[in-house]
Amino acid sequence: MKEIVVCGEGLVDLVPAGDDPLSPLVPALGGGPFNVAITLGRLGSAVSLISRLSDDPYGEALTRALRAAGVNLSLLQRGSESTTLALTSIAADGSAQYSFYLENTADRLVVDPGELPRTVGALAFGTLSMVIEPGASVYEALLHRSHAEGRLTLLDPNIRAGVIDDPDAYRTRFTSWLPSLDIVKVSDDDAEWLALGGGAGGPEQWIEAGVGAVLMTRGGSGLSVLTERFSVEVPAPAVTVVDTIGAGDTICGALLHWLDTHRLLEPAKVRQMSQSDWSEGLTFAAKAAAVTVSRPGADPPWAGEL
């Protein structure tokens, strides 16, 4: 198995304990990249996290959870800055909305990790870490460098419009990443936001720009993937949804795990995958996400649960 490096923030979600917006807030560990790393570790992949976590009690809790899931912490940076907080509200259909507290928090001050170990075969990026400076430029440089070195790259932009001050500039920046990406994972809402005003185009344009595969999540309607040669759709398993926190992150982690266990964790091999390969990989990812949405918070499955 190759090592997979996840790049980006860990934070704490503050989730109301009840339906009343003034219900007590319950802290839960989260952040898109953090959840992807936890998913990979729980499923048994060799995984590391590049991030900067606070030395505060929340940062310590995030670190303990990573270690418990089997995530290698040798690339993790620590600092005295505070942990990012996300005030979370859950709608009647289980969907989540977020308000972020980001000023002077730890991950935005991440520094370039330098040369990565030869064992690293893939890197995953996403969410706030690709927006908030100066860290966003550090992750962006790492993305381009890693792709040039022949490592598989995956991006889940996981759009949080409330923290993007200049949407048009972000869409332009997103298009600049496309030639360095092998897999782009978006929700249908992400794709719609990115396409507003024609700014970043859509999946077909992303494939033309060099992306190997565009994976789209459609909630209860399942998953689909578009490649240069074909498209594939798989249904979502029937499940009672508690909330959707971490569902997309679980899909990213589960797909990367599946690719690794099937010896497909290489840019050229992803581009050569058959419709059958993609159907099997997406079905595995959908099954993993179904476990996550069946319980509260971002709580991805362990290998034994699948």
Results as ranks from 00 to 15, higher is better:
residue 55 D to L: 05
residue 64 R to N: 07
residue 110 V to L: 14
residue 97 Q to W: 01
residue 42 R to E: 11
residue 43 L to Q: 13
residue 108 R to H: 07
residue 53 L to F: 14
residue 34 F to A: 07
residue 165 D to H: 06
residue 63 T to V: 02
residue 32 G to S: 15
residue 167 P to D: 03
residue 157 P to K: 09
residue 62 L to M: 07
residue 136 A to R: 08
residue 43 L to R: 08
residue 93 D to W: 14
residue 32 G to Q: 14
residue 143 L to S: 01
residue 26 V to S: 02
residue 96 A to I: 06
residue 142 L to V: 00
residue 44 G to I: 09
residue 105 T to K: 11
residue 57 P to L: 00
residue 48 S to W: 10
residue 143 L to N: 02
residue 30 G to Q: 12
residue 44 G to M: 09
residue 116 L to E: 03
residue 129 S to T: 15
residue 89 S to T: 15
residue 118 R to A: 14
residue 55 D to C: 01
residue 107 D to Y: 10
residue 137 S to L: 02
residue 72 N to S: 12
residue 126 G to K: 07
residue 27 P to G: 02
residue 101 Y to V: 13
residue 109 L to G: 00
residue 98 Y to M: 09
residue 39 T to P: 14
residue 124 A to N: 13
residue 107 D to E: 15
residue 131 V to Q: 10
residue 116 L to W: 07
residue 142 L to H: 03
residue 167 P to E: 03
residue 31 G to M: 13
residue 116 L to S: 07
residue 165 D to R: 09
residue 126 G to I: 11
residue 26 V to F: 00
residue 117 P to G: 08
residue 45 S to H: 12
residue 134 P to S: 11
residue 156 D to I: 09
residue 75 L to C: 07
residue 144 H to S: 03
residue 72 N to H: 13
residue 42 R to A: 05
residue 93 D to S: 06
residue 38 I to K: 09
residue 154 L to T: 12
residue 101 Y to K: 07
residue 52 R to T: 08
residue 121 G to A: 12
residue 117 P to Y: 04
residue 126 G to M: 14
residue 51 S to W: 05
residue 44 G to C: 11
residue 82 S to C: 06
residue 132 I to V: 15
residue 37 A to M: 11
residue 161 A to T: 10
residue 81 E to S: 09
residue 93 D to A: 09
residue 107 D to M: 08
residue 141 A to D: 11
residue 108 R to M: 13
residue 71 V to K: 10
residue 142 L to T: 00
residue 74 S to C: 05
residue 129 S to C: 11
residue 157 P to E: 10
residue 120 V to E: 04
residue 85 L to S: 03
residue 162 G to S: 10
residue 157 P to R: 03
residue 125 F to I: 04
residue 41 G to F: 10
residue 112 D to S: 14
residue 45 S to K: 09
residue 91 A to P: 05
residue 143 L to A: 01
residue 60 E to S: 03
residue 36 V to T: 15
residue 56 D to G: 01
residue 29 L to E: 04
residue 107 D to K: 03
residue 155 L to M: 13
residue 38 I to Q: 15
residue 77 Q to N: 12
residue 111 V to T: 14
residue 152 L to C: 02
residue 115 E to W: 10
residue 136 A to L: 05
residue 40 L to K: 04
residue 64 R to S: 06
residue 118 R to K: 10
residue 156 D to Y: 06
residue 64 R to D: 08
residue 134 P to D: 07
residue 109 L to N: 04
residue 100 F to E: 05
residue 28 A to S: 12
residue 134 P to T: 07
residue 134 P to W: 02
residue 136 A to C: 11
